[in-house]
Design a protein around this nucleic acid. Structure first.
Lengths: 190, 190
DNA sequence: GTCTATATTCCGATAGAC
DNA sequence: GTCTATCGGAATATAGAC
């Protein structure tokens, strides 16, 4: 009666996320997941009927994690700089594991994805950009940040630095990524 | 005696490049190329025995194009800003065709590629970064550019803005990419 | 240099038993 | 919820004729 492993679905989600970040959406298969979790191909299909369902689940889960991070940062006493650094730390963790962020990874395949998944990706990107923009605006208002131009543009500059910085570090090494992080903070420092 | 089409190899290279930039390395097949060029699967294998050979050729060709661009810019009377804008224009052309740059595209699959291809990608990235850094240094020396921090870091910031900017524009629209371009020039303007 | 034909492997997916 | 078994299709790749 009790399932052999009640968390299989969660395990698939976690592993799928990892495989996308390490090898890309089109480079891993249900067989890879089955092998790693010591279950059969069919069991994966039970939880996620199609690969696109799995991708949708992974993106939803990624959004949820971001929402949790934002909630945990919305506490009195946390400065805008600390919030920005917390967002940056997400990318740093990724880089340290030789991964890239989900968005950058699926972007190569974006034009091959069904509309429903594209929408989810769009929602995820919009959400993250809005979160960071809010932090930049807060920092500027409290004189903790300084930047010319509007907050939206500065957000775009920072997030593209981080996303492609993670990608680049895979090719040229982590040093470049760290230089980028320093450069970002330098630019907005009051 | 004369081949039906002496430029088949060139056509394959051009189309392969396009498919990588539009759909990603793992999302297109030799069948796609054959269909589009109205030749057979086997003919593609004749010119490029394996898909990795094709990828290697595409990267080599991409490097050559960059070398040509740099050579065409190394003429008296061309300002550093004009050079930088010429490099940026490459990305803008890509964005207008809903493509992303080769490097960003293959980065998702990087960990699945053979060492020989990884080295080529590394060489390409190194070359492009060096080219842009040279332009930034020249601009600073001639007081055409202003930026704090070293030229290498500024190069990393700019190139990650462009690479991920192209990726992002696929998801949120070209407006964000254009804002990024304006932001880049704003940052280095003397 | 391109073709036909085919080999092999893998992939995503499903039916039906347990 | 997981299994065995299997299907249809697509991918990479090669042999050999023209």
């Amino acid at each position: 009666m009790a399932p052999r492993n009640a968390d299989t679905k969660e395990d698939i989600l976690r592993l799928g996320t990892e495989l996308i970040q390490l090898y890309g959406y089109n480079a891993f298969s249900y067989a890879d997941i089955a092998k790693n979790l010591h279950i059969r191909n069919a069991a994966v299909h039970y939880h996620y009927p199609g690969k696109e369902d799995l991708l949708a689940g992974i993106i939803d889960n990624y959004m949820e994690k971001y929402r949790q991070l934002e909630a945990s940062l919305n506490q009195p006493g946390i400065t805008a700089q600390q919030k920005l650094e917390a967002y940056m730390a997400r990318y740093t963790e990724i880089v340290e594991q030789n991964k890239i962020c989900i968005i950058g990874s699926v972007c190569s395949d974006y034009n091959t994805l069904p509309a429903s998944v594209k929408e989810r990706i769009h929602d995820l990107v919009t959400m993250v950009l809005d979160m960071v923009e809010k932090v930049l605006l807060e920092g500027k208002r409290l004189k903790q940040f300084h930047f010319s131009g509007n907050a939206r543009t500065q957000t775009l500059l920072i997030m593209t630095n981080l996303a492609a910085g993670a990608q680049l570090s895979r090719i040229t090494g982590k040093g470049d990524y760290l230089a980028i992080c320093k450069g970002i903070l330098q630019q907005v420092k009051a």
